[in-house]
């Protein structure tokens, strides 16, 4: 993982999460903005996943547990996708809140992935 990229990713996920929560609690159904923010979080996760796959080839090895890292990485990939899927089916304001919850969960998971890659077992 690339440290600055993960931090940027966490920041985006937190912003997207808070944004979706605010919009959701103000009573709006999922719209292009909230779905777009969640999609952006997902795109960054895909990039992060590719980065993590390629990084060891460039001498950037995980310090921590690789299996644990990929369990997080794969779960993280599923989460916003599932939330968006849900939001497209269930057109209520709660789906917008759920988008926010998913984005915030991603922030925590990326933080944890970052810890595993950079700090664990040092």
């Amino acid at each position: 993982m690339i440290e600055w990229f993960s931090y940027a990713q966490i920041a985006v996920a937190v912003l997207a999460g808070v944004f979706c929560l605010v919009v959701g609690f103000s009573g709006r159904i999922p719209n292009d903005y909230t779905l777009g923010a969640t999609a952006l979080v997902e795109v960054l996760l895909v990039i992060q996943f590719i980065v993590a796959l390629l990084a060891p080839a460039f001498g950037n090895d995980a310090r921590g547990d690789v299996l644990e890292f990929y369990v997080y990485a794969v779960s993280a990939l599923l989460l916003p996708a599932a939330a968006v899927f849900w939001a497209l089916i269930d057109r209520t304001k709660w789906s917008t809140v759920i988008l926010g919850v998913a984005c915030l969960a991603i922030a925590v998971m990326v933080f944890r992935m970052n810890e595993i890659w950079l700090i664990q077992n040092v």
Partner: peptide
Amino acid sequence: RVLVVIYAILALGAFGRSLV
């Protein structure tokens, strides 16, 4: 529904961790 989603996320997290 939000409650269910949080439950699902926790289930996913607990499952992943215990698997590892």
